[in-house]
Design a protein around this nucleic acid. Structure first.
Length: 926
RNA sequence: GCGCGAUUAGCUCAGCGGUAGAGCGCCUGCCUUACAAGCAGGAUGUCGCUGGUUCGAACCCGGCAUCGCGCACCA
């Protein structure tokens, strides 16, 4: 519990743990779908259970939690739902690596034992992750925590697969897929990363079957970066417009080493300008060649096995690994006189994201999602929604990236030859094909085995077919992103259309995620929703699973590299939390965010595990701590509630000023938070708290808090207590633990009442007042000018000196008379004169053209003072020159808006007056 | 090749038509009892280069340069 006397420095560790525990055990963030309040919902991007969280997760968490905590303060019925992702291929890769280290393969364990291991891994990693998320103070509903492979999500996957299949949106077929030999699985296009590598371009001679052409040519020359695929060549292609080869099209070549006769075909794909203009065509091993093969009805010859070695079709190269085969083949070609030359060649090679090896385009029978109809629906929602694009991207530019990807999209290969994941709900009728699964084994898609059996019976259960009917479920698993694509509705209870959470919180309010998974995840979710949630919709796109998509940048390290586990430059968020506190880390991350979703850079010293950025936020936390400590010391047991709201009649200058600033800040902060400009909200509140409340208000009001006059003291207490309480509420989304702690200390609220569930401050708009703000600003500037003179004078700070301030403006004079005592205290003055006449022994300074200040000093430090005056003069003269130049331009007077011209004139007069004043002072000095 | 972003104080970044700001760092002085994780005062910039639009450009438009990212790729 908050201590009556707060210690001098804030210690986050105990405080944070205490409130995390209190929030969770009280169910503070466990919303009731039946409760009132506008619904606001977020499902968090589920982290992969691949180990522990990195800074990117902490960043994402800080942003989401700031948003949902703000919305809670707005009185909405907020659901923030947490969970984790089973990360099929990533986790399986980790586990297989572990097995390999122990000299085992997954086949040695068997499917069941392997899955047990995987679940054990999930339990450990998931536990670590959830622990880390708790340490950040995430205000999610842990009672609704989900896992993409839990019973509910699995049921959703089966249902989704069946419905998509029924709609003709899932099909099975043999196509060229990206095969990852390391994982032993197909992967999708998105899981392939193009990398530049230094390779070679081998030029080969393919002899004409006819011996020699009319012009005497005996062969064509082709070039390749992958000689081993030669064994699967079934044609050589040239451009149809290429005059060099026009007469050869239709003839055949003899494929070296193999002896196969392959045709010369004409195809537009071939660039006549590149190389010799002849391309070898290997339809079974290259996507472009596959397309050429389709157009020319070429045979497909697969020469490679799934482990990346050469197969029986490779003849004498069979059994060799694909890279060994390359060497062997080149050697054989050279020996046979078919090698023309070898050039070094830098080119892009597709690599598997997970396996980190080159992927092999391979013919394979897999399951696919037909994406175009789904993508079309998403594009329509983006372009045609009456109420604006759905979803709405923030920043908007990402919608173009999203749309472009949904245009010309290719079908999505969803089957994976993996064990860890959702097993595909399809059953092969193996009794039809001798007990084994082949590409031609018939299958049924069903919700479970008994439904599958019933379906199979109805189709194959008659007459000629084998009995008894034997089914075997497809051994393959689904792409992880298939279940992730259902996340916004599977977590809310889908496919139960009547699930209360689904009814209340779907579609979700905002999705907050990094741009790197727009394709993987964001687009998959909208596509899935288009097929499965569309029935919800009326005319509008109510099925789109989130209204807004807030895209944030990546966290980069001190060298501007993306922080990632694989690069080894990640920073464990817990390290920084332990050193500075979760609030400091959160505030630092959010504060770094610029408006446009730029990447953020977190500076970090790896030797000492320190970060200047986070430290600055920690210091801010400590500042708030001490401001509250100061308030408590002066409130004498009173609270904002017991004191009541400030009363206009008893307010002094600084009260009116801080209240005006407070209301403005609250309005602006609400606007910024609500429009996802979180970094700006953080900076605004930081400045208000530190500059306005602490540096100015508290300092000006100290004399009243200490004075004998009970009425004056109470007035000051009211303003201080209320301003601070409002500030703590406004900062709560950014620094939840600290503000919860301080708010309890300040308000004396019960333990089971939470700041997290309070309302955003309701403040009197009437407190906003420009004239008070201006008058007080004059006070601030006068004090600064006097302090500056003192600093120049070299007089000991402890020595009190007579000061003078002069202004010709009645309001200012009134302000000065009313605040003499406070000003004297702030500048270390002994007496204050309001006399305009400079006297000898005074150092004089300028506030503006109206106001001058002076201090009386025993000995003047004339050199420093002169330098200051010269500098003032120089500055004023420079300004005069600029302003006069502008005014002298006849076009300026004619075309610029009158108020700009007037302002310019006023500034000129001001600068001239200041210059004049400075000259006079300089003359006096001599 | 197509597209996107960045280029502002020593560092990290705001600002996006009226003559430049913050944090950190730096200089000077302060343990002024809320806070030295602090206070006060101060210094620091041909706003990447180059044309143009405008009375006026860090900001708008056209080039160029450098860095970074995405997509597509020619064997």
């Amino acid at each position: 519990m908050p201590e009556a006397n707060l210690p001098k420095t804030y210690d986050p560790a105990g405080t944070e743990a205490r409130w995390q525990q209190a929030w969770e055990s009280s169910g503070a963030f466990h919303p009731d779908p039946g409760a009132p309040g506008e619904p606001f919902s977020v499902v968090i991007p589920p982290p992969n259970v691949t180990g522990s969280l990195h800074m990117g997760h902490a960043f994402n968490t800080a942003l989401i939690d700031t948003i949902v905590r703000f919305q809670r303060l707005q009185g909405k019925n907020v659901l923030c739902l947490p969970g984790t992702d089973h990360a099929s291929i990533a986790v399986q890769t980790i586990l297989e690596k572990q097995l390999k280290a122990g000299g085992q393969r997954k086949e040695d364990l068997g499917r069941e034992a392997f899955l047990e291991k995987a679940w054990a891994w999930k339990a450990e990693s998931g536990g670590t992750i959830v622990g880390q998320l708790r340490r950040l103070g995430y205000s999610v509903d842990w009672r609704r925590e989900r896992f993409t492979l839990d019973a509910g999500c699995s049921a959703a996957v089966i249902e989704a697969f069946n419905r998509l299949h029924e709609q003709g949106l899932i099909y099975r077929g043999e196509y060229l897929v990206n095969w990852c030999p390391a994982s032993g699985s197909a992967v999708s296009d998105l899981e392939v990363e193009m990398k530049e590598v230094d390779g070679h371009l081998w030029h080969f001679r393919y002899p004409l079957t006819a011996g020699a052409a009319a012009d005497g040519r005996t062969h064509l020359e082709v070039a390749t970066t992958r000689p081993e695929t030669l064994l699967g060549d079934t044609a050589v292609a040239v451009n149809p417009k290429d005059p060099r080869y026009a007469d050869l099209v239709g003839q055949t070549l003899t494929l070296p080493l193999v002896g196969r006769q392959i045709p010369i075909v004409a195809d537009d794909h071939v660039d006549a300008e590149f190389g010799t203009g002849c391309v070898k065509v290997t339809p079974a091993h290259d996507p472009n060649d596959f397309a050429i093969g389709q157009r020319h009805d070429l045979p497909l010859i697969t020469v490679m096995a799934r482990d990346g070695s050469m197969n029986e079709a490779a003849g004498r190269f069979q059994g060799l690994d694909r890279f060994e085969a390359r060497q062997a083949l080149v050697a054989a070609m050279e020996e046979g006189g078919f090698l023309v030359k070898v050039e070094p060649y830098r080119h892009s090679v597709p690599f598997s994201d997970r396996g980190k090896v080159p992927v092999e385009p391979l013919l394979s029978t897999q399951w696919f999602v037909r994406t175009e109809p789904l993508a079309a629906r998403c594009r329509e929602a983006l372009d045609a929604a009456a109420a604006g694009p759905e979803p709405r991207f923030v920043p908007e530019r990402w919608s173009k990236v999203y749309r472009d990807w949904l245009t010309d999209i290719r079908d999505w290969c969803i089957s994976r030859q993996l064990w860890w994941g959702h097993r595909i709900p399809a059953w092969f009728v193996v009794s039809e094909t001798g007990g084994v699964i082949t590409d031609s084994t018939p299958y049924v898609v069903a919700r479970d085995e008994s439904e599958a059996m019933a379906k199979a019976e109805s189709i194959y259960g008659t007459g000629t077919h084998a009995h008894p009917m034997v089914l075997e479920q497809d051994p393959d698993a689904l792409d992880t992103w298939f279940s992730s694509g259902l996340w916004p509705f599977s977590t809310l209870g889908w496919p139960d259309a009547d699930a209360p959470d689904l009814a209340r919180w779907y579609p979700t309010s905002v999705l907050v995620t990094g741009f790197d998974i727009i394709f993987f995840w964001v687009a998959r979710m909208t596509m899935m929703a288009g097929a499965l949630m569309e029935s919800r919709g009326d005319a509008s796109a109510a099925w789109i699973p989130f209204r807004d998509v807030y895209i944030h940048g990546l966290v980069r390290d001190e060298n501007n590299r993306k922080m990632s586990k694989s690069a080894g430059n990640g920073i464990d968020p817990l390290l920084l939390i332990e050193r500075y506190g979760a609030d400091a880390l959160r505030f630092a991350l959010v504060r770094e965010v610029a408006g446009a979703g730029q990447d953020i850079r977190l500076d970090y010293d790896r030797k000492s595990d320190t970060s200047a950025t986070v430290e600055a936020s920690r210091n801010f936390a400590n500042k708030l701590w001490n401001a509250t400590r100061f308030a408590l010391m002066n409130l004498d047991g009173e609270t904002p509630a017991s004191l009541g709201a400030p009363i206009a009649a008893e307010l002094e200058s600084e009260d009116r000023w801080i209240l005006s600033r407070l209301v403005r800040t609250a309005d602006e902060a609400a606007e910024l938070y609500g429009s996802y400009r979180l970094g700006e909200a953080a900076k605004l509140l930081y400045e208000f708290a530190w500059n306005d409340l602490c540096d100015q208000y508290i300092e000006w009001t100290k004399p009243r808090l200490a004075c004998e006059d009970a009425a004056a003291r109470t007035a000051a207490r009211r303003v201080l207590a209320n301003s601070l309480a409002a500030l703590l509420v406004m900062l709560h989304p950014l620094m939840p633990h600290l503000t919860e702690e301080l708010w309890h200390a300040l308000t004396g609220s019960d333990l089971d009442t939470f700041l997290a569930l309070q309302a955003w401050p309701e403040l009197e708009q009437g407190w906003i007042d420009d004239s008070y703000e201006q008058a007080f600003q004059f006070g601030i500037e006068s004090v600064r000018a006097l302090r500056n003179l003192r600093a120049l004078s070299g007089v000991k700070p402890s020595e009190r000196l007579p000061v003078g301030i002069h202004s010709g403006i009645p309001e200012r004079q009134a302000f000065l008379e009313a605040n003499q005592g406070k000003i004297l205290r702030l500048v270390g003055g002994s007496t204050m004169g309001l006399d305009p006449k400079p006297t000898t022994g005074q150092l004089l300074g300028i506030v503006d053209s109206d106001a001058q200040v002076g201090i009386t000093v025993p000995q003047q430090s004339l050199d420093a003072f002169r330098r200051r005056l010269e500098k003032d003069l120089e500055k004023a003269e420079k300004e005069i020159k600029g302003l006069a130049g502008r005014l002298a331009n006849p076009n300026f007077g004619g075309k610029a808006p009158p108020e700009v011209v007037a302002e310019c004139r006023a500034n000129l007069a001001e600068a001239e007056a200041q210059a004049e004043e400075a000259r006079r002072r300089l003359a006096d000095l001599v």
